[in-house]
Every structure is written in structure tokens, then in C-alpha cells.
Design a binder for these strands. Sequence first.
RNA 1: UGAGGUGUCGCCAAGUGGCUAAGGCAUCGGACUUUGAAUCCGACAUUCGUAGGUUCGAAUCCUACCACCUCAGCCA
Length: 558
Amino acid sequence: MSDRNTDTPNDFIRAIVREDLTSNKNRGRVHTRFPPEPNGYLHIGHAKSINLNYGLAREFGGKFNLRFDDTNPTKEEQEYVDSIMADVRWLGADWEDRLLFASDYFGRLYEWATYLIRDGKAYVDDLSAEEIRQYRGTLTEPGQDSPYRNRSVEENLDLFERMKKGEFPDGSRVLRAKIDMASPNINLRDPVMYRILHATHHRTGDEWCIYPMYDWAHGQSDAIEGITHSICTLEFENNRPLYNWFLENVDVPHYPRQIEFARLQLTYTVLSKRYLQRLVKEGYVNGWDDPRMPTIAGLRRRGYTSEAIRSFCEAIGVAKANSTVELAMLEHAIRDDLNMSAPRAMAVLDPLKVVIENYPAGQVEEMVLANHPQQPEMGTRLVPFSREIYIERDDFMENPPNKFFRLAPGREVRLNQAYYLTCTGMVKDEQGQVVELRCTYDPDSRGGTTPDGRKVKGTIHWLPVAQSVEAEIRLYDTLFTKPNPGDVGEGEDFTANINPDSLMVVRGRVEPAIASAPAGSRYQFMRQGYFCVDPDSQPGRPVFNRTVTLRDSYKPAP
RNA sequence: UGAGGUGUCGCCAAGUGGCUAAGGCAUCGGACUUUGAAUCCGACAUUCGUAGGUUCGAAUCCUACCACCUCAGCCA
């Protein structure tokens, strides 16, 4: 494991927390939360936030809440809360007994809203959505007061209660905070606190027909839960004054502090819920857990470990500058983890048959192969060796360039942990394609060394023809062809950059020893990459997902 | 162009006035190698958006400018 994992993360948020601790700001408490809206699956960007929030709680002896920000019943579903819980848990964040929902606070929020009305700080507005927009002004011009802004407290109270009772149709009225229509910060121009929505909520059912807006619900929920550091992304910076206004104008039990950090952006991928939603709904991928998706579910199915995701999150850091992390960083994290933990195996993706002419027909030797070259404690396994074997088509060239270390006519290579092999001839089909190789082996090279100590430059992988097992192997490439999928021409959107070759399905062969491995098992297929058994596997017909290729420093001669 | 933010190596990112501007990823050399993997060694910002200023001394302080991001949902 790399040493960065043992380093204590250091960033501006941890600096703030440390200061608060030394000044005893929250009586030494640290309490964070992860507040997803259950309207989609979690992705790698959420993992950054979860890792930050949970990491903070763990490092400073604090607590971490999982709170669903479920204030918009028209977009939220139980399926999403289930998947989010599973993903947060898989990532290793523990909310203990604090599984919470903003909808649990609807009653309290309602009471606080009536308090604001009584205090002359909120009013019911009859303007339409369109009118409200017009009255709001623009970025450079102040807004105008709504004609309903100065209703009496009694009328406001009555109207608000009737809104709650469901007497008015959707969109007919809203409750607004009375702040300042001329504020240079548009969020403060009498923001909407409640809208009427005759919709069934996934938890509260039809109990409510008014629902609080994010700005109103979020800070108050933080206050109720005793959150000390309410961490969100940069786009909420402009909302912070409003977050604070709501806390200052009702009698809250606690004052949380909102801190914003830059959300994750990754090359060759999109990380907006709306785009991910489209990829799923429009069939560009096969569901939220498609291994090409940057969702937690997709990464998991692809073969990523939560440990790798965690170490990636630590490697990228936390800051306020917008930035785009190279995909190579994520790939490094999973290679780094799997290099240590994944047992090695051999698989041939594109088989080329080899007949070893001096090997006795009918003879089978059980070769003993190490499961990990650097970790003998990972044990060994048996792979049968016989007269007919498969090698990778790529590992043979009829006319190789001089730096090609693999098999070619007259050249000798080592079959991984088996024998030295020399190519003596080729069999071609009518099209001139090589369909079979004729070779000889050196009986004195068993295990991969010879008494004369001669060197071979190349070692290739192999599989016995009879005992190897056919497998479906899914080779993934990036879902987009450009580092920035949003880099499109006029009238195009990100789908124009979808990579038509992001999934290549291949019928290859694997060792008998791994043919029935359970879904989720991870291996390094030697010289090729890390692979993971997919849940689509059937007994005797395994399906493997390529998690990531191995690094490859081989460069064909110019 | 109102307000709020951000600008340190190809990509992340430390650095909060004083040794030669951390570290990771990537890249490029070389060693080792029964994975062209891993591992190991080495190279990789006289310069911190730009221009001025303060100071014995500035990426760090001041001034001006430039670039980029966010905000005009009854989304979050």
C-alpha cells in the first residue's frame, strides 16, 4: 500500500475543523452529514463528499449522519434511497443509528415557518411563477416587491394554513421569506420557502401538499441534527447568506457552519445526475450499474474496490479551485490496490492454437503456478499442460519488428511457469491468416528455466486446449471519446462524444481453476489487466469484466 | 456588465513574509524481472494569472488589471 494512505489528509476544511476544536467552538464536537437527494444513483463525485464527511467525523472523533434531502416528491423514489444506502455502506461510511430524512422535519419546519410569518418575516405570495421571475429583477437590476408582500400576519397565517390543507391548486401560491428584493445576491430577493405540490411523497405519502425548498429545509435540518460543519459544493456559496439568514431568524437549537468545496470532475466522464440519468433512460448504457458508468454501482460491478475509491479520494485532495482530475489517477488507485490483493490467473482473449509436435499426444501434466509472484502466501493452483495449447494471437508475429520479445518463426519464448517453446511453422487458411502454430518445446525447461541457464526475453501466457473453459470477456473503454465530453459542436450535446467502442465483448478462454468463481471475484489476468466476475455469469459459462488494463510500456518500433 | 468565488509543473495539490517552491498522477531515462506488470533508482516549476508597489527578504502583504467558475427554478 502506498504511504499516502497512512498520511493524515490535510486540506482547508480540516484546517477549519482544527481551529474550531482549539477554540472549543462546538464544545469540541464534530458532526458531519452526507445529504443526498434520492433522485438518482451515487457516483464517484459523491464518494469524494462521503469520504470527506465521514473521514472528518472519524479523524476527529465525531459523528456522521446519512440524511436524505427528500423535499421534492416529484423527483424522488424509494429505489434511490435503497441504492444510496447500499452504496454509502459499501464505501465504508457508517451512520450508525442516524439514518435521517429531511421529511422527518416537515412538522418542525412548518412551525418555524409560521413563526417567521408571525414575526413579519415571511408572506404568502399569489404571484405566478412567471410573475415572480419578472419581479425578481436581473443580475444587474434590483427586483420589485410583490404586491402581496405586505399582507397582514393574520391573512398570511390563514392562507398558509389553507395551503397546507390543500385548498389551493399547485403553483397558485407560495410562501416567501421577506428579506430584500434589492439585494445584490439574488438568493436574498424574497426566496420561496414553500410551494404547493399535490404529490405523493415516498415517505410521508399524502400527508403534505406543501413542500419546503432546499434553502429553507437544509440549514434547519443541519441545526436540528446538531451538524457542526455542513459541507457542500461550490455552487452553494451564493446561498450561504440565505442559509445563515434562516438560522438567525428562527430560534434554532444550534448554529451549523456551511463550507463549500469544489466538486469532482473527471476526464472522459460526465458526473451530473441529469446526464447520467439520460445515459440510462436513453439506453446508451445498460442501467445505473453498467460497468462503464461512473456510478458507485457501476464501478463496483466493473471491479473497483471501495478501498481504491477511498485512496483515490485522498489522492485528489479537497480544495476550492474548480479542477478536472485525469482518469489516470482513478486507474492508478485501482491498479495499486489490486496489484497487491488480486490473485493472478491466465486468460486468452483471442486464442491461437499451438501444437507442440515433440510433446507426447495424450499426455497431461499438472503445472503448479504461483497465485502471486511477490506473495507466496497466496498459494498455488494447478493448470494442465498438454500437446495442444492456446496462446494469445497478439503474442505471435510472422514478421516481427526487432524489439518484439514474443513468438515468431524460429524464436523461442517461455510459456509462463511451464516450458520454453520454439516456433517451427505455421498453418494458414485460404485467406493467408495464421490459424495454427507448430512448435517444439524443450523438455529440460520445465518450470521455466533450463540447466544451461539460457535466457529468453519473452514470457507469454497459455492455456490447454482441452481443459480451458470458454468465457465471455467484456472489455471496456471510456464511455466518451473526448477528455471533456462537453466539448461539442453547434447543436450537439455530450452524446455526440459517446464512444461507440466503449464495450467490446470477446469470447476467450480461462483456466479451469477460476471458471466457477463467484460473482465479484477479482483476478489479474497476467499481462492483460484486472478482471472481475460479473453477476451475469452462469455455471460453466463465466463472464468477466475488465476493470482496467495493466500499464503497458511496450511501444512498437517507429 | 450586480454579487460571490478561484487562479502554484501536462493533471491534482501543499505552501498563511525568511533554508535550494512538498507530495501524488502522468511523462521520459536506466536497473531488475518466469507478467514488456510490479519493484527500484534518476530526470521533471530560477518560478507561483499579469503588471506595479511595500520589505533586507513575497507564491505568501498592498494596488491595478486579466482569465475562468457560480447565481435571475415554485430543482437540489
